[in-house]
Simulated assay, not measured.
Amino acid sequence: MRRLGVVTDMTLREMLRRRGVLILLLALPLAFYAVRRNDSGEAIRALFLGLSWAISAAALFSASAGRAVEPRLRLSGYRSHHLYLGRLAALLVLGTGIGLPLLALVALDPAQSKVRAGGVALAMLLCVTVAAPFGLLIAAIVPRELEGTLVLLVIVGIQMVVDPAGSAAKVMPFWSSREIATYAVDHTGSGYLDRGLVHGVAFTVGLAVLVAVLSTVRLRTRSHMRFAPGR
C-alpha cells in the first residue's frame, strides 16, 4: 500500500504542478456547457462529454510523461500494479476534484432547476471512472502523444455524432453518461439509469483490466536478461 500511495502522490504532484493544464481541464467542460446552456438537456450532455474528454486527455498525457521513470521505479522494487493502479488512483482524485465544482454549477444554475441532481452526480462519477482508464489505454496502445490525442479526438467526435439509440452507440465508452443524462433531464423511468449504470461499470472494469494486462506485459522483467556475476 505504501508504494501504491507513493506513485499516487507522485502522479498528483506532477499534474498539480501544471496549473495552466488544470485550468484548461476545467475550462473545457465549462465551455461545452456554456455553449449549450439554454438547452438544458444538451448542456448537461455536453458537460459530461467535456468532462470525459478532459480526464481522458489528462490520463493520456500523464501516462506518456510517466513512461520515462517507470523502468527506474521497477528497478527500485515497484511492481507493475503499483504503477498503473497508483496512476489510476491519482487520475480518479483529479477527476473528482474537477467534477465537484461542475456539479455545484449545475446544482446552482437556475436553468437546471428541474434536473435530477443525483443523476447528474452519478453520471459525472461514471465519466471520471471510465475516462481515466480509457486515456491510459490509449496511451498504452499509442505511445506517442500526438497520435494518441488524435485517436481520442476521433473517438470523442464519433461519440458526439452517433445516434444514441443505435446499436453502435452502445459500444462507445461514454454512452452511459447519455443514458443517465436522459434520466436526469427528461425525468424518464429508471430503465435509463439502470442501463447507464451497468454500461458505465462494465466499461470501467473492462478498460481497467485491459490497462492492467498491457501495463504488466510492457513492464514485465525480461527473462533473457541476467545480472553479471561480481568479480
Rank of each mutant, 00 (worst) to 15 (best):
L197A: 13
A168G: 02
L85A: 09
D9F: 01
L207S: 02
I55K: 04
M225V: 11
T8N: 07
M225F: 08
A104Y: 06
R67L: 10
L137Q: 01
L91P: 12
R178N: 01
C127I: 04
A27R: 00
V162P: 11
S167A: 14
A212V: 01
S176T: 08
L137W: 13
R222K: 13
G99F: 00
R37D: 10
L24I: 14
E70N: 02
G206P: 09
L47S: 15
L49I: 09
K170P: 08
G5C: 06
L83K: 12
D9K: 12
D9V: 05
V156K: 10
L137C: 00
R67C: 03
M15T: 13
Q159F: 09
R87V: 03
G77C: 10
V205D: 11
S177P: 01
L103P: 00
G230L: 05
L152Q: 08
I180W: 08
P71G: 11
L193Y: 14
V161R: 02
R18L: 09
L16E: 05
F32V: 06
V213H: 04
R74G: 15
I138N: 05
L92H: 11
R144D: 13
V130R: 04
C127K: 02
I98W: 01
A58Y: 13
R218P: 00
R17P: 04
E147G: 11
F32L: 13
Y78K: 06
V151S: 04
V185A: 12
S56D: 04
D39W: 15
V211L: 09
L28S: 13
E14N: 05
S62G: 12
A59R: 05
P71K: 01
A168V: 10
V120Y: 09
R195V: 05
A202T: 05
A123D: 02
R18G: 02
P110S: 09
G99A: 15
R67Q: 03
L94P: 14
M1C: 10
F61S: 12
F203H: 12
Q159K: 01
S223A: 12
A90T: 09
